[in-house]
């Protein structure tokens, strides 16, 4: 009996101790980790989409809640005016989620560009969604009114050859982005006023 209590006691204390350490490390690094993810995963895509903007979207960013989820928005200023906004959405690809950075022109209500940030698609096939600029360019200037589909599904997007599911995933993410934008448009414009000084 003493043995049993001893075992339970040791494991409990050890687990509690380990939990404590992990919680404090997590808390102290979470800000840094978020910054690193921004810098290495999102920044390249954002720079491409908001190319030519006069501010630094990495600094001019804010968060908004969409239901339960919190989304980071990156502001792009052109000629001194707040003109575009970029944010990340996810779509189910061939293997796991595909992260897509979507840029929206808030004046013309159209896409200014999309770029894949994170994915685990097949190298050389599905991964072309990220590396082939022609694929992403198809989304440029499309209106943010309805969703996007690949051609076999009755849409306008040419799927990557051999990677229909990946292409569908990107379309899903872009469609999601449109929905989010439409849902949050008023709140976004409210927020953006602060940046248009």
């Amino acid at each position: 009996m003493r043995d049993l209590i001893n075992m339970v006691l040791v494991l409990t204390i050890l687990s509690a101790f380990s939990g404590g350490i992990l919680a404090s490390v997590k808390q102290n690094t979470s800000e840094k980790i978020e910054f690193q993810q921004l810098k290495f995963e999102k920044a390249p895509a954002i720079k491409e989409i908001l190319a030519g903007c006069s501010n630094d979207p990495m600094i001019d960013r804010f968060k908004l809640k969409d239901g339960e989820k919190e989304i980071s928005f990156f502001v792009g200023k052109f000629d001194g005016r707040v003109k575009a906004i970029a944010f990340e959405t996810y779509g189910k690809g061939f293997e796991g989620n595909i992260g897509l950075m979507v840029g929206v022109d808030i004046e013309t209500r159209s896409l200014i560009g999309v770029g894949v940030t994170t994915h685990s698609e097949t190298p050389g096939v599905g991964s072309k969604a990220k590396t082939d600029p022609k694929f992403a360019a198809q989304f440029k200037d499309l209106p943010v009114a309805e969703g996007f589909k690949v051609k076999p599904d009755g849409g306008v997007i040419d799927a990557l050859s051999g990677a229909t599911i990946t292409s569908r995933g990107v379309c899903l993410a872009a469609t999601d982005a449109v929905n989010i934008y439409n849902r949050l448009e008023n709140k976004l414009k409210e927020k953006l006023k602060a940046y248009s000084k």
């Binding site: 040791v10 490390v25 997590k26 690193q36 993810q37 810098k39």
Partner: peptide, 27 residues
């Protein structure tokens, strides 16, 4: 009797610490 379980808790804790530190500093 429960040494392996204790070892794994200890090791797993440090591995997670390393993982977080690597994410924070050598992404």
């Amino acid at each position: 009797k429960i040494r392996i379980a204790c070892f794994i808790i200890i090791i797993a804790t440090f591995v997670t610490v390393v993982e977080l530190l690597m994410q924070a500093f050598t992404y």
